[in-house]
Amino acid sequence: MSVELTKANLSDIENMQKLVIPEVEAGVILARSSDEIATNIRSYILAREEGEIVGFCALHIHTPTLAEIRSLIVKESKRGMGIGQSLIDKAMQEAKILGLKKVLTLTYKQSFFEKLGFIEIPKESIPEHKIWADCIKCKHFPICNEVSLIKTL
């Protein structure tokens, strides 16, 4: 079976939220409302297998030179098949096309991102608006165990 990568559309939101529920409940991925996903729908890349969403991620732009990979999820039964790497590769291609210089991520999967060329950076170097816009909503805030990583394009 092959996985197709596509941009998300508004009719995908319900299925995207269903896929991410376990990771949100575990505190691994930040909860996002339907309205928030709709507002940022253009930033989402989906992985589909026979029409079913089996993974997604978002490329969220912070500044003209910096974006963030966020909300990376792959259906548990499909992990280890290269879907996550394909999603990140697609997001990085889009970042290059847009003219971004760096892409950051906050993750519990440090080794996964390091295999893709990301390097760890101090959390203090993350833009402050990121902390107040997103991190403050996290159930782990302010005690964050995520690792911040960045990749220069």
Rank of each mutant, 00 (worst) to 15 (best):
H129W: 07
I88D: 00
N40K: 15
R42A: 12
Q17H: 05
V54H: 00
A95M: 13
I37C: 00
I37Y: 01
K109Y: 00
I29F: 01
L100R: 15
H129C: 04
H60F: 15
E4S: 10
H129Q: 11
L116C: 14
K123S: 12
S34D: 03
Q17W: 00
E146V: 08
L149G: 03
M81E: 14
E36P: 02
L153T: 05
S125D: 06
K139G: 13
P122G: 10
L100S: 03
M92S: 06
Q17C: 13
E114M: 14
I83K: 04
I126M: 05
S71R: 12
L98I: 15
S2T: 07
Y108I: 09
Y108W: 08
I131E: 15
A91G: 03
E4C: 08
Y108A: 10
A95Y: 00
G84N: 10
M81T: 11
Q17V: 08
W132C: 06
V147L: 03
S33Y: 07
I136N: 06
G55C: 04
E25T: 01
F56R: 06
S43P: 11
E25N: 03
K130Y: 07
C57I: 11
I13P: 04
E52A: 12
E124D: 14
F112L: 11
S86V: 10
C135G: 05
V20F: 01
N9W: 03
I29Q: 04
E14G: 07
S2Q: 06
G55V: 02
T63A: 01
